[in-house]
Simulated assay, not measured.
Amino acid sequence: MLLWINGPFGGGKTQTAHEIRRRLPGSVVCDPEHPGFGLHRMLPPELRADFRDLAAWRQGVVEALDLTLAKHGGVVIAPMTVTDPGHFAETVGRLRELGHDVRHFALLAERETVLRRLHVRGFGPVLRYVAGKDAGLRRESWAVGQLDHCLERLGEPEFAEHLWTDHATVPKIADRIAVLAGLTLEPNNEGALRTRLRQAGVGLRHIRLD
Rank of each mutant, 00 (worst) to 15 (best):
G93S: 07
E152P: 09
R103V: 14
A168Y: 10
P125I: 11
G136I: 02
T91R: 02
R117W: 07
V114D: 00
L151G: 04
L151W: 01
D148A: 15
V170E: 04
L163W: 08
Q146W: 03
L107G: 06
E110V: 07
H119M: 02
V130C: 02
G122W: 11
R96L: 05
L107N: 11
D101N: 10
G124P: 15
G93E: 06
P85G: 09
G86I: 00
L154E: 08
E90V: 07
L147V: 04
A89Q: 12
L127H: 01
D166Y: 09
S141T: 12
H167Y: 09
G122M: 09
H167F: 12
L107P: 02
T91K: 02
A143C: 11
A143E: 13
H104W: 15
F159I: 14
G86K: 02
H104Y: 15
L163S: 01
H87Y: 08
V144R: 03
Y129G: 10
L137F: 02
D166C: 09
E90L: 10
R121S: 12
Q146C: 08
C150A: 15
W164R: 13
P85T: 13
L107V: 04
R94P: 06
L163G: 00
E97P: 15
E158L: 13
R111A: 09
E90Y: 04
L95N: 07
H149M: 07
V130T: 10
G99T: 02
G124N: 07
A160T: 12
V120G: 03
H87F: 13
V120M: 03
V92I: 12
A89L: 12
G99R: 03
V120R: 05
G86D: 13
A160M: 10
G132I: 10
G124S: 11
G124F: 02
T169F: 05
P125R: 11
G124L: 08
D166T: 09
A131P: 00
E152M: 13
A143H: 07
S141M: 03
R117P: 05
A89R: 14
V144I: 09
A135N: 04
R116Q: 10
R96D: 06
Y129E: 14
L108A: 09
A135D: 03
L127T: 03
F88G: 08
H149K: 15
H149N: 12
E161F: 11
G99E: 01
H87I: 00
C150K: 06
H104L: 09
A106N: 06
H119A: 01
T165N: 07
V126Q: 04
R117Q: 08
L108Y: 13
P125E: 06
E97L: 12
E97C: 07
S141F: 01
R128C: 05
F105H: 11
T91G: 01
P157S: 07
G122A: 11
K133Q: 14
E112Y: 05
V170D: 05
Y129T: 15
L154V: 05
E140M: 15
F159D: 02
R96F: 11
E90R: 11
F105Q: 09
H87E: 08
G136V: 01
P157T: 02
V144A: 05
D148H: 08
V170T: 15
